[in-house]
């Protein structure tokens, strides 16, 4: 039995399905692909799969991971992406498959690319929005209400912004690195909602997760 990890991208129509739905889509793809993987042994047996870092509904990603255990040690891991892709809907594509190296608990941060667009057409120009964004990011503290297990709590996001750089290209673009994982996870929407409030502008943000990192900044593999 081998612990394997597939890395997949999620975009297009699959951007709009929740984590729970993604789980179901993956289970059916595995069943349909006839990949011989370990099943739970309870009364209601089902293929056992885990996801390291759930992705919010509405986000795209180029670096999602799913783990399972293949029963056959001789299984050709290189063939698995193609086998699964034949069974997956438009918008989820497996890119690679290999034995898992890191544990999900090793995850420390994630990088997002964000494209910001004002929804109230014409009221604010791209240049103005860019200026507002620089001013916003230069604030000494960015206080937001964050939902925690103990209720709403006010937190300052500023120290959590591990990296934040404007990106070239059409529109207002940002590359953003934030803490991620089971101990501390900051959703980029927290920051973007705070910016919307700050700029008094309704925003449409396209968010793509482009990297998941472990301690020291290495890719989670």
């Amino acid at each position: 039995m081998k612990n394997v990890r597939v890395i997949y991208e999620k975009n297009g129509p699959c951007k709009y399905i929740s984590h729970l739905d993604t789980n179901r889509v993956m289970l059916r793809a595995i069943t349909k692909s006839r990949l011989d993987i370990w099943h739970t042994e309870g009364f209601n047996r089902h293929p056992y799969i885990t996801f390291a870092l759930p992705l919010s509904l509405g986000f795209s990603s180029t670096c999602e991971s799913m783990d399972f255990r293949v029963l056959n040690d001789e299984e050709d891991l290189a063939a698995i992406p193609e086998r699964l892709n034949a069974c997956l809907p438009e918008g989820i594509r497996v890119l690679s498959c290999r034995e898992a190296v890191h544990k999900p608990a090793d995850i420390e941060s994630a990088k997002y690319e964000v494209k910001i667009e004002p929804l109230n057409n014409g009221e604010i120009s791209e240049e103005e929005l860019k200026e507002q964004l620089s001013a916003f990011l230069a604030l000494p503290e960015i206080l937001v209400d964050k939902k925690t297990k103990k209720g709403m709590k006010q937190v300052d996001l500023k120290p959590y912004i591990l990296a934040c750089e404007p990106q070239d290209g059409e529109g207002v673009r940002l590359s953003l690195t934030l803490p991620a994982g089971s101990t501390l996870n900051i959703n980029p929407n927290l920051l973007l909602d705070a910016f919307a409030e700050y700029s008094h502008t309704e925003l449409y943000c396209e968010i793509t997760r482009v990297g998941i990192y472990v301690k020291g900044g290495a890719d989670f593999v």
Partner: peptide, 15 residues
Amino acid sequence: LLKVQKPGRYVGGEL
């Protein structure tokens, strides 16, 4: 789509 409930209803692209 991100303003409505269950946006997955409106996008198609299913297997």
